[in-house]
């Protein structure tokens, strides 16, 4: 049990939770959150795996930084789309999900 392993495991768990949230949730905002969570899990695993050496490999850090920025961009765009859709169609669900649940 070393911190990298702990965080890698936690990362895997978070990843899976995010993935499950993505596939189970209907509300788009929740899905966006789920994907963010999933991304965090991914990044956790990446950084944790990089931490197997000392000093840690900086390349994964750079990758994760890039990933975080990309994630925020995508999230911002998704939220903008969501609010626009909600404004136009009055629902925060994708069309195919609207008549169930």
């Amino acid at each position: 049990m070393t911190p990298p392993i702990i965080y890698a495991s936690a990362g895997a768990a978070v990843l899976c939770l995010g993935l499950f949230g993505f596939l189970a949730a209907r509300h788009v905002l929740r899905r966006i959150l789920a994907l963010n969570v999933m991304g965090s899990g991914v990044f956790m695993m990446l950084v944790a795996l990089a931490a197997r050496t000392d000093p840690p490999d900086p390349i994964p850090h750079a990758l994760v930084l890039t990933g975080i920025v990309v994630a925020v961009c995508v999230t911002a765009l998704a939220l903008a789309l969501l609010t626009r859709m909600c404004r136009d169609e009055g629902s925060a669900l994708l069309p195919e999900d609207r008549d169930i649940e």
Binding site: L19, F22, L23, A24, L94, E96, D97, I100
Partner: peptide, 13 residues
């Protein structure tokens, strides 16, 4: 088609 769209994540998994 609709079911596939609804279960997108599941399909990917």
């Amino acid at each position: 088609e609709v079911t596939l769209a609804q279960r997108a994540g599941l399909v990917m998994v």
